[in-house]
């Protein structure tokens, strides 16, 4: 994996700190994400992982620190602006438009790349480029057999795949995925891992995840957070071997199964 780490850096966050009143949710967190890599953010509940991903996606402004995307300082950009430069995210709780079809969910995501609000007399469903793109992204996320389903009736795992398809339709170079495997059965989880590996080839993926087996199956880099601080960052082998990580997060040795 060492050749991967030398690849193009997409997202670089330096010294991110976020305070909520007197509480320091994130203190001096630095994360680097390169193309072709899956970088996993690991840590117990309350470690500050969601705060961190929210700062990267623009949902939460950092108190201190800077974020660069492909060399451009994006610290002050809003969530919508970051989406426009190429950062897409999915949420911990499934966040789709349940009354829309799968196709319409992804088509709406694709439409965000060519916003022409003044064109109020053209039909949205007749924009061929958006439909084609939506179908391609649905296929890429492994949801091809559900194109015309109403998204609200999909299984939990399929809805998570739909979220990925929506992010892909925004041409995101960086995918910020908040627990994409949460609540999935082992079969769904395994197929999602395959999807993630496939997506990694051309993009950078930052993953917040609890599922240990999945983490070590896909991670190229792991950052461990505890109490809002960065504990350790390195390739999976280094994290596995780290005494500090085992004590702080993985607990006793017998709960640490890979």
């Amino acid at each position: 994996m060492s050749e991967r780490t030398k690849q193009e850096v997409l997202l670089q966050a330096d010294g991110l700190t976020r305070r909520f009143g007197g509480l320091v949710a994130n203190q001096d967190i630095s994360v680097t994400l390169a193309r072709g890599m899956i970088h996993v953010l690991l840590g117990p509940n309350g470690a500050g992982k969601s705060t961190c991903i929210n700062m990267l996606s623009g949902d939460l402004p950092p108190s201190e620190g800077r974020i660069h995307f492909m060399g451009q300082d994006i610290t002050r950009l809003s969530a919508a602006q970051r989406s426009q430069v190429g950062i897409g995210r999915s949420y911990q709780r499934t966040n789709i438009f349940p009354q829309f079809s799968v196709l319409e969910n992804v088509r709406l995501a694709a439409q965000s790349r060519r916003q022409q609000p003044w064109r109020i007399f053209s039909k949205a469903m007749e924009a061929a480029w958006a439909l084609e793109k939506a179908r391609a992204c649905i296929e890429e996320a492994g949801l091809g057999r559900r194109v015309d389903w109403v998204s609200g009736v999909l299984s939990h795992g399929e809805q998570r795949q739909l979220e990925i398809a929506m992010v892909l339709a925004t041409d995101a170079q960086v995918l910020l995925l908040d627990e994409p495997l949460a609540g999935m059965g082992s079969e769904e989880s395994a197929s999602m891992v395959e999807v993630l590996k496939r997506l990694r080839r051309t993009r950078g993926i930052l993953l917040v995840e609890h599922d240990m087996d999945a983490v070590f199956a896909v991670a190229d880099m792991i950052t461990v957070m505890v109490n809002g601080q960065l504990l350790e960052c390195g390739p999976p082998a280094q994290i596995k071997a780290s005494v500090a990580v085992q004590q702080a997060y993985l607990g006793t040795e017998d709960s640490f199964h890979v």
Partner: peptide
């Protein structure tokens, strides 16, 4: 889409 979930629309890049 805004009626359904405005926050999601923003994260999809809509102003």
């Amino acid at each position: 889409g805004i009626k359904s979930n405005e926050h999601r629309m923003q994260s999809l890049g809509y102003f």
